[in-house]
Amino acid sequence: MVKQAVKPTRSELLVIQRRISLYERGHKLLKMKRDGLVIEFFAVLSKVKDIRSKIVDDYRRAEVKLTVATSVDGKNAVQSAAFAIRDDPHIKIGSKNVMGVVVPTTLESGTVKRRIDQRGYGVPGISVRIDEATDAFEQLIEDIILAAEFETTLRRLIDEIEKNKRIVNALEFRIIPELKRQVAFIQARLEELERENIFRLIRIKGSQV
């Protein structure tokens, strides 16, 4: 920070004091925001942990289901069933505001997982094992979408906390102490001017006497 030349005047002192009081209020508010963001961060973090472990479990489950389907019904039957479903899952993404941080939110959850009669293939001809594998992978995709939402929220919260921390630190350790030093300097300078004035007045009075 480039040091500005400070004019040691009373008006400048008032301006700086007003700035200090504003910065201190801002610092207090930013600290409160940081604490709020940290609380929100830990809440989302536990959700991320839960969804991560759910993804791992669901992936294992889906893999076993797929292995059983491929083993009993054959790779060709599984591939044939996969031909029936080709539309990519569509999700609607919105946004919400968490203490000034804009985070994504899925507006329609549960759009990937479909009921058996909506999967495209004819139910009487499909193997239960293939259908259960389809169901398990649909569930996995839903979890991944949810995880993407939570992890993006978490990343944005981390960025915001970092940004906030930098501002709070700058205010706490740089800007406010600097301003306080300036106040002290101006006050010292003003007091010195005051003393010089008094001394000058005494000297004038003495010479007149």
Partner: peptide, 26 residues
């Protein structure tokens, strides 16, 4: 044959390459 026909219909409707459909037939 019914299984083959189902696979072909699924493939044609969802634009699966002919090679890929052929490989899954019985």
């Amino acid at each position: 044959d019914v299984l083959n026909l189902k696979t072909i219909l699924r493939g044609i409707l969802n634009h699966i390459p002919a090679e890929e459909i052929l490989q899954t037939l019985r």
